[in-house]
Amino acid sequence: MNGNNLMCAIQMYDFYLYELNLYLDTHPTDRQALDLFKKYTELKAAAYDAYISKYGPITADQSSTDERFNWVDDPWPWERSANR
């Protein structure tokens, strides 16, 4: 999966989890919703890991702190390379 597809997947999973969250707020014991929430939480984590390992952190807290704060290495949103 290239970056674009991975980012699309992340957006889809984020949205789905948000919808499920809203439903579970009023239906906290709904079995189907709980199962889906668990499934998509895992899918989202996997998509994040795949994206981050290839393209770097999406949010600053995902930055590495081994040698370098690689959060600063990404093309910044206003840079041309970030908008190809």
Partner: peptide
């Protein structure tokens, strides 16, 4: 009416339609 569970859209459709229900 209190919302009932229903078969949701797939995640790509849900994002496009703006709801999973």
């Amino acid at each position: 009416p209190f919302q009932q569970w229903e078969t949701p859209y797939a995640e790509n459709i849900a994002l496009e339609r703006g709801t999973m229900f």
